[in-house]
Nucleic acid binder design. Structure first.
Lengths: 342, 342
DNA sequence: GTGAAAGCGCTAACAA
DNA sequence: TTGTTAGCGCTTTCAC
């Protein structure tokens, strides 16, 4: 059978056991100086024999520090979320901070509640992923609640809070240029959710590439998605059902591109022979699916790690980096080719 | 500019503002009876005008409840982890509980530390995914620390703590039987990490299927993996390099099967024409890769949701379900076919 | 219906 | 080098 839960030993119990005051125990446990080695040892022994573990809740109350950091995100792409978490957890390893996750269904609609939610959770700091990273209301509420924050991929008001940025416009222009240079002229676009500012930025990048190549921006070939695979599937179906179907599709993230890939497959189209397809993000599935997707690598992991560092810096009263520009990479893989000559 | 952080209003401030005592404020905020409607309204108004938010840390200390639930897992497969989190978060929506994630590098080696880690994090409860779910040491430490827990996919000591179970042996037998019935006789196996009890169980299921079909259990065709795609890739390479290469490979999860798929492709083999391949778990990539994998669906999402419910039941002093058996499904997709006639 | 006092387990400030 | 006192912000007695 399992042992019974017994009353938890407190710092006072340990002190009594070691024949010292509670404060001395506290000093030893927190590695403060000015405690004789002999007493230190007595305290440690007493703590061990009583199975003492500090009560984080009490410590948190008096120190005004919960050691809890939040991650706020909307829930579109599993691989994106995993990368965010990995980045934060990597920075948090061997620190006393813990990661609390806050997937918010619709951040824009609920932006008024979000800060209250984070505040009542007693967080010390948060990392804001899109689209929360662009929500000024949340930023403001966080500041007035005294919660440290850092942002990933904001597009607006960069100077307002520490930001990790990648140049979405340039990245989108580069991937669109690659497709145009392969010879495509009828090019469909699957946009991400409108509440993400990155969606606008990427569309602008595409349009710059079209303009530079002397191609018109065909608004009739722009379909709205929401960053989910399902939405990419549906959008691709609409595009491919056109009388004048595109020979290439630019999807604004990899999940939607994979959805488009499945849609193409269902119509008997082979990628890239019949249809060129590109994504965005270099998420794991872009490498796993077949063919692997031409995409743009966003250093999500590094941005999350860096954002976490920015938050911790604030909590430790070090001046945080206010802005970190991250590089992107155009990754040309097997999903792009010249258009079929029909 | 952002607003300045101002001192947080306390229950006493609200009381003063409303002309009542702190206790009355507490009563109103916690919905306790015996407060006149007029006073209730005054208190609510005062709280709103002072932007009062309860301090969870103080409440946690006095109530001995942090409202924090942990999820403990090792980090093999991203899609698996995401499903676990989704399941927990679904149950946690509209409750005051928060989710704290604990990816532990090597649970078996660090089993002694894990409970201490969870205890010092001040968790009220935890959901244990494999292989922590099978670690008696952790279970025991958790019980003696008075932390509620529930398990996902344990193979041992089922009665020791609330468990969510799928019948790995039967599931593995079914998928192996499917492969055998297609006509395969030389069948390779890629095992998962030995620390996961599910790995043993699945191997047993395979062996039952072999026995029932009158086939020998070929230990020379069993390769060790660790549930990662890379390990599946390496194991498949070893299998396919044999003089007598298998015509089918049973991988113990989908990630390893995808690794094997890539290995086969590199050797110029087509799945399923040249090689039949099956996975386990029905994780997202099993549907996205090409060909989609024949696999066994494990209701990871439902198990996580149910496990969370078991934990909450304990915290609310309701008797938790002690055991929940979940169904599995054999999903026959395009990665399995009759062996090539050579 | 409402309030005063005590205390959750810990640490900061000050004494000794 | 060590101990004492006073809280952190809230909830729990138990009075009124």
């Amino acid at each position: 059978m399992l042992e019974k839960a017994r009353r938890r030993a407190t710092i006072i119990d340990v002190g009594r056991h070691a024949g010292v005051s509670a404060k001395t125990v506290s000093r030893v446990l927190n590695g403060e100086p000015h405690v004789s080695p002999a007493v230190q040892q007595r305290v440690r022994d007493a703590a061990a024999s009583l199975h003492y573990h500090p009560n984080m809740l009490a410590r948190a109350l008096v120190r005004q520090r919960s050691m809890l950091l939040g991650l706020v995100y909307e829930n579109p792409s599993a691989s994106y979320v995993v990368e965010l978490q990995r980045g934060m957890l990597t920075r948090l390893a061997d620190t006393p901070y813990r990661l609390v996750v806050f997937p918010i269904a619709s951040i824009i609609e609920r932006s008024g509640e979000v800060a209250g939610l984070l505040r009542s959770a007693g967080l010390d700091g948060v990392v804001l992923a899109p689209p929360a990273a662009d929500d000024l209301r949340i930023l403001n509420d966080l500041a007035s609640a005294g919660i440290a924050c850092a942002r990933i991929g904001p597009s607006r008001a960069i100077e307002l809070a520490p930001s990790n940025i990648v140049d979405d416009i340039t990245a989108a222009r580069e991937i669109a240029t690659h497709v145009i240079e392969l010879g495509h002229r009828t090019i469909g676009i699957i946009k991400g959710h409108a509440s993400h500012a990155a969606s606008e930025a990427r569309t602008m990048g595409y349009s710059q590439a079209f303009y530079a190549a002397g191609l018109p921006m065909r608004l009739d070939l722009v379909e709205q998605g929401d960053f989910t695979r399902e939405s990419g599937h549906a959008a691709a179906e609409r595009l491919l059902a056109r009388a004048e179907a595109p020979t290439a599709i630019l999807a604004q993230n990899d999940d939607m591109a994979v959805g488009a890939l499945l849609a193409a497959r269902e119509r008997g189209l082979t990628v890239p022979d019949d249809l060129t397809l590109v994504g965005f993000d270099d998420s794991e599935i872009s490498r796993i699916c077949w063919p692997p997707l031409t995409t743009v690598r966003q250093p999500v992991f590094e941005m999350a790690r860096e954002a976490t560092d920015m938050v911790i810096a604030q909590l430790e009263d070090r001046p945080p980096l206010l802005r970190h520009d991250h590089p992107h990479d155009l990754l040309i893989r097997a999903s792009t080719a010249a258009p079929p000559r029909s």
